[in-house]
Design a protein around this nucleic acid. Sequence first.
DNA 1: AGACTTTTATTTGTCTGACAATTAAAATTG
DNA 2: CAATTTTAATTGTCAGACAAATAAAAGTCT
Lengths: 243, 243
Amino acid sequence: MKKSNSSKGDLSAQIAASIRDAIVTGDLIVDERLPSETELSEQFQVSRSTVREALKRLAAQALIRTQRGATGGAFVNHLKYPDAYAQQITTSTLLLSMNEVSIATACEARYALERACTPLSAERRSPDHLATMRAEMHRQSQPGLSDEAFCASDVAFHRALVDGAENPVMSYQLAGAVEAMQPLMNMITFTARSRERIVELHTQITDALEAKNAPAADAALIELEAYTISLAQDVLKARQARQ
Amino acid sequence: MKKSNSSKGDLSAQIAASIRDAIVTGDLIVDERLPSETELSEQFQVSRSTVREALKRLAAQALIRTQRGATGGAFVNHLKYPDAYAQQITTSTLLLSMNEVSIATACEARYALERACTPLSAERRSPDHLATMRAEMHRQSQPGLSDEAFCASDVAFHRALVDGAENPVMSYQLAGAVEAMQPLMNMITFTARSRERIVELHTQITDALEAKNAPAADAALIELEAYTISLAQDVLKARQARQ
DNA sequence: AGACTTTTATTTGTCTGACAATTAAAATTG
DNA sequence: CAATTTTAATTGTCAGACAAATAAAAGTCT
């Protein structure tokens, strides 16, 4: 926790950066308690408010947690998968929505990454994973399902597919790629006809994984990618035609 | 920007969440100016300090930026790739270091995802990408290179490989997987012998991409993954033997 | 002695009011 | 009309206060 007066930005940003460094480099270890806000304000020679703004910055990145009370304070947080998922999903979603990423580009990335999971998933998927996938497919087949609910179920299906690889790091990395697509997918209106086709491909994928047939799952995913992109292009065409 | 009094957490966290929602759902659009801190404190019926803590939380996630002065204020930030990269890398690095992730698991995820890039990269890589890769290989061959510098160059090589796919979303998703491995790799002491072997495999990969031969690049990456894991296991064995 | 209650000290959370720094626009001046 | 000065708005920082939570310490009763 150096008092580097060099860098740029507001005081609170500088202090946050210096504490962040201490955490990332391991100077501060998990569950270690930081000095109290008053002590920090003395160490850094700033007011308590400024220290607090710095701590809130770190809390927003889930790097620390705070507790009130006698033995309370700010503690280096053990970053767990759910926290990391949430961060990743927020960032990915915003990145896609703010950078005019075409559905084709986003789909290409998503399906390429998902296909990286299939060999592992075909080998390791548990009955639980298969059951989840089939349950979501069943939901997707029900008439009267809203487009948003269909998309949400689609995401759940693909998450189970990824989780089947039984590699938590992979699940984490894919979380953003899969979930962040949902806003883009929500622009699509799924007809009964297209839902039927998607469930058909989902069935092929699930069957392939159950049979530990990775190439078949791969082929179905490639078809699903192409089909999704064609659906999206239909929407774009229809939109342009209206204008 | 609802004034949901329901949820949990501190006031500043609630306010941050409600503004974040407004940004993610598109209620607030890019470059739009938020009300001034004083106005926000009136809207939310809290003090200015509390509003400021909320805004700092959002700034930490690069969701807003602030400017001083007459026409200043807080603006919805256009989240660009470099910002998103940085966030991703910090989160991934901490996730790996705090969750006792084995090198084997991390490597498996990383190489599976990288291999998802090779078919695209073989097709699209520019002369620039190939040049970068060869330049890094040359650096890696130089004697007297520190282990950290070798690792950094290795990361640069793999980043070029990923960028070759010419899909920015993919590059973003992979940034975490590739960069976050560096601390783990830094534990390895690379002998002259092992560096030679790694450069050899890098050469195979680059040659394969240049020849647009995706399967060959894939095979070389599989070998590289196995070799990296074996190197890491040697380190672990040596460490256990000392104890 | 042991269980329960009260007090106390510590720490974060919030509020208030003030002033500094920055910046663009408005007013002034030559 | 151009250059300069003033003004107003806004974020950044500070100081001091009190509320709320919480665990440890002290006290009390059986």
